[in-house]
Computed example of a mutant assay.
Amino acid sequence: MPNALIATAPDFSQPIAVLKHCHDRIRKQLDTLQNLLEHLPQHGNDAQAQQAAQSIMRYFNQAAPHHHADEEVDLLPMLSVTASGEDAALLQKLMPEIMAEHQQMDKLWHALDQQLTSIADGESTNQLSAQDVQQFSAIYSAHMEKEETWIAPMAKRLFNEQQMQQLGSAMQQRRGISV
């Protein structure tokens, strides 16, 4: 009997579930980022602040780029080949938006990463911009909502078992996990 108390990540045989799991982890990191913004003025750059900054940086410097590549290199191109009719029209509208949002998030992340590095290194307490945090969180949240509302359901509906396996394998290889 599996232990229901321990949350496990979906495996790559369910690539759309893996992408959703990534979104859930992104939301947790965005919450940590907001908590850090509130923590710093009250507690300064203490060990908790440094640990939070390191955790956020680790996720957005390592896992998030893989997630974006999953979408840009595999998911969206596969959908564009598979979709037809209304799905194709919707995809044609959403793909440029999604790609542009990835670029916006990368640019905002670059600024936040520099701020968080100072915090993680114990150098600064007031270097986290509330505006940068708000903008990054807002763009990411709207972006994930768009993907969960339109892209993921479309992929679930249109992809056959072989396409799901192909997507999952590509995602797994991107992360250096043997297939």
Rank of each mutant, 00 (worst) to 15 (best):
L36P: 01
H39S: 08
P41G: 06
P41H: 04
N45P: 04
N45V: 02
Q48S: 15
Q50D: 01
A53I: 01
A53F: 00
Y59R: 01
F60E: 02
N61T: 04
Q62Y: 11
A64L: 05
A69H: 04
D70K: 06
D70P: 11
D70Q: 04
E72N: 06
V73Y: 08
M78L: 14
S80T: 06
A83Y: 00
A83L: 03
D87E: 15
D87H: 13
A88Q: 06
K93H: 09
E97R: 12
M99G: 06
A100D: 14
A100T: 10
H102C: 09
Q103V: 06
Q104P: 05
D106A: 15
W109G: 00
A111F: 13
L112Q: 01
Q115G: 09
L116S: 02
S118R: 14
S118T: 11
A120C: 09
A120D: 03
G122D: 12
E123T: 02
S124P: 09
T125M: 10
L128K: 00
S129V: 12
A130G: 13
Q131W: 09
Q131C: 10
V133F: 09
Q135K: 15
Q135R: 07
A138F: 13
I139C: 03
I139Q: 03
Y140L: 15
A142S: 13
H143G: 05
K146M: 06
E147A: 05
E147I: 04
E148Q: 11
T149W: 07
W150I: 07
I151P: 01
I151Q: 00
I151N: 02
A152W: 10
M154E: 02
A155L: 06
L158P: 03
N160I: 06
E161G: 07
